[in-house]
């Protein structure tokens, strides 16, 4: 039988919430009986996505970040959305080491980390409207009965 579960959360675009968001997702994923490596992977990917919304989407202005998680059997889908300024050139933003904010000592590795640590990533963005990052991770374990 198919197992499903979902959760939805929204929070202010404050950097304090980076840790909050990744811990929430890790806790939600606990029902998939993840390995330590899988937990580390999703925590890192969520941290990157939320940090992007805060630094680039809202550029430290106040805004709301939405986080949705959907479990279907052993697959976790995570969506991080903002209504910030959006990304002009997604392909360029996703290049390793590209950063629009070198003065902040950003490494430009955020999207590369998300791509490597997750099984799938899709980025939707519209300049002036916001950005939505969808990431999928397939867990090795079987779903608990």
């Amino acid at each position: 039988m198919e197992y499903k579960n979902h959760m939805k959360l929204e929070f202010d675009s404050k950097s304090q919430n980076e840790a909050f968001a990744r811990v929430v997702v890790a806790s939600f994923a606990a029902q998939l009986d993840p390995t330590l490596e899988e937990i580390a992977d999703i925590k890192t990917a969520v941290s990157e996505a939320v940090t992007n919304s805060i630094i680039h989407g809202y550029e430290d202005r106040m805004g709301v970040v939405k986080l949705t998680c959907q479990i279907t059997n052993n697959v976790l889908e995570i969506v991080v959305e903002d209504e910030g300024k959006g990304i002009d050139d997604i392909n360029r933003a996703m290049e390793p080491l590209f950063t629009s904010k070198p003065e902040l000592e950003r490494s430009g590795m955020g999207f590369t980390v998300m791509e490597t640590f997750m099984d799938e990533i899709n980025v939707y963005s519209e300049p002036g409207k916001g950005t939505s990052i969808r990431m999928v991770k397939k867990f090795k374990s079987l779903v608990a009965e």
């Binding site: 580390a40 941290s47 902040l104 000592e105 950003r106 490494s107 590795m109």
Partner: peptide, 13 residues
């Protein structure tokens, strides 16, 4: 306990 790409930026800097 945890590090994301912000840490890479700190070390590279």
């Amino acid at each position: 306990q945890f590090m994301d790409s912000s840490g890479i930026g700190v070390i590279m800097g």
